[in-house]
Simulated assay, not measured.
Amino acid sequence: MIIVKTTEEIELMRESALIVSKTLGMLASEVKPGVTTLQLDALAEAFIRDHGAVPGFLGLYDFPNSLCMSPNAQIVHGIPNNTPLVEGDIISIDCGAFKNDFHGDHAYTFEVGEVAPETKKLLDVTKASLYVGIREFKSGNRVGDVGYAIQKFTEDHGYGVVRELVGHGLGRKMHEDPEMPNYGKRGRGKKFIEGMVVAIEPMTNLGTHRIKQLKDGWTILTADGKPSAHFEHDIALVNGKPELLSTFKYIYEALGIESNEEDEFRQLKI
Rank of each mutant, 00 (worst) to 15 (best):
L40Q: 05
D41M: 06
D41Q: 09
D41T: 09
D41I: 03
A42S: 13
A42W: 10
A42D: 09
L43A: 05
L43I: 15
A44T: 07
A44K: 09
E45V: 14
E45Y: 10
E45F: 07
E45I: 15
A46H: 10
A46K: 12
A46R: 14
A46S: 12
A46P: 00
F47G: 03
I48F: 01
I48Y: 02
I48H: 10
R49C: 12
R49D: 08
D50Q: 14
D50S: 15
H51I: 02
H51N: 15
H51P: 01
G52Y: 02
G52P: 03
G52H: 01
A53F: 04
A53T: 05
V54N: 10
P55E: 03
P55S: 10
P55Y: 01
P55I: 05
G56A: 04
G56P: 09
G56M: 00
F57L: 15
F57G: 06
F57C: 07
F57I: 13
F57A: 10
F57R: 13
F57Y: 14
L58T: 04
L58V: 02
L58S: 01
G59H: 12
G59C: 08
G59R: 12
G59W: 12
L60W: 08
L60K: 05
L60A: 12
Y61G: 10
Y61W: 11
Y61D: 09
Y61L: 11
Y61A: 14
Y61S: 10
D62P: 03
D62R: 08
D62S: 06
D62N: 08
F63R: 04
F63N: 07
F63P: 06
F63M: 06
F63H: 11
P64V: 04
P64N: 11
P64C: 10
P64T: 04
N65Y: 13
N65C: 15
N65I: 00
N65P: 03
N65M: 08
S66E: 02
S66V: 09
L67A: 08
C68T: 06
C68D: 08
C68Q: 12
C68W: 05
M69T: 14
M69S: 12
M69G: 05
M69E: 06
S70L: 00
S70M: 01
S70F: 02
P71V: 06
N72F: 04
N72D: 11
A73I: 05
A73G: 09
Q74A: 13
Q74M: 14
Q74S: 11
V76H: 06
V76E: 02
V76Y: 10
V76F: 11
H77I: 01
H77R: 04
I79F: 00
I79H: 03
I79D: 02
P80Y: 00
P80W: 08
P80I: 01
P80A: 03
P80S: 03
N81R: 06
N81G: 15
N81L: 07
N81M: 06
